[in-house]
Computed example of a mutant assay.
Amino acid sequence: MHKFLTSIFIAIVGSVLTAIASAAPCQEPKLESVPSTHTECYFYKGTRHFRAEEYSAALKEWLVIVDKTDIPVELGHFRANAQNNIGFLYYMGWGVEQNSKTAIEYWLPAAKAGHHEAAYHLCHAYADAGNQLALGYCREALRRYNNGGSSDSEDSEVVAQIREYISHLEVQ
């Protein structure tokens, strides 16, 4: 009986310690009110690592988001952003071995979820590879950027690049 009670006690203490550890606050600025296991915390930790050019560490944080099965609908944009960012890391070979195919595998679900930058990356990647799918993705990316209503100069450059891709692809 003593062993049985001891094992129950150890299991309860282990559960309590796990709950306490998962309730630790996020260490990212302005996110101290959310737990360190929150999707938003993982995303911004990844972003901080990316900006510090710690690409492997960024990948690790964003992969946690992509692998989560319990992301509420209102936080789904973090998954699409993480997928887009991971695709970019693979395409560029930053923190991982460069792999366009893997990049595309991350961009496809992000684009399907409505991520306009992922659609642009698919346009770019397929066009550079000479893939027939490029024209469709380029047109979709242009539609998304035009409907976005942004007058941001960076977006204007992306739109110009997409139009250039389209004009080259339509000639082929």
Rank of each mutant, 00 (worst) to 15 (best):
A119R: 03
E154Y: 14
A80R: 01
P25Q: 10
N99L: 06
V171Y: 09
Y91I: 04
H116W: 06
G95I: 06
E154Q: 15
H38Q: 08
Q27R: 09
A141L: 11
G76E: 15
S167L: 04
E164I: 02
E32N: 12
E97D: 10
S153I: 09
F9S: 15
E54F: 03
G149D: 08
E74P: 01
E117Y: 05
H2R: 11
Y120I: 05
S100C: 06
A58Y: 00
V16E: 04
V159T: 13
C123P: 04
H168T: 09
E157L: 12
K68R: 15
G87C: 09
I86N: 01
I8G: 12
T39N: 02
D67G: 12
D128A: 13
S7F: 11
D70G: 03
Q98K: 14
E40D: 12
D67P: 04
G76D: 15
C26H: 01
A125Y: 00
A57R: 08
F78P: 01
K112M: 11
P35Y: 03
A160T: 07
E28T: 13
H124F: 14
H38S: 09
I162A: 01
G14W: 00
Y55Q: 07
A19S: 14
N81C: 07
C26P: 01
G148F: 05
K45Y: 10
G148V: 07
S36D: 15
T6Y: 15
P35S: 12
P29W: 09
W94C: 02
H115R: 14
Y165D: 01
T6D: 13
K68C: 03
R144P: 00
H116I: 11
V96G: 00
W62M: 10
A134W: 00
Q132Y: 05
P25G: 13
A125T: 04
R143H: 10
V34H: 02
V96T: 10
G14C: 10
V96L: 01
V16F: 04
L59V: 01
I162D: 00
A127V: 03
E170T: 13
V66Y: 00
Y42F: 15
G114F: 07
I8M: 13
N147T: 09
T37A: 07
L135I: 08
I166R: 10
H121D: 10
Y90A: 04
G87H: 05
L59T: 00
Q161V: 05
L59M: 11
H168Q: 13
L133Q: 14
G136T: 09
A19E: 11
K68W: 01
V13L: 15
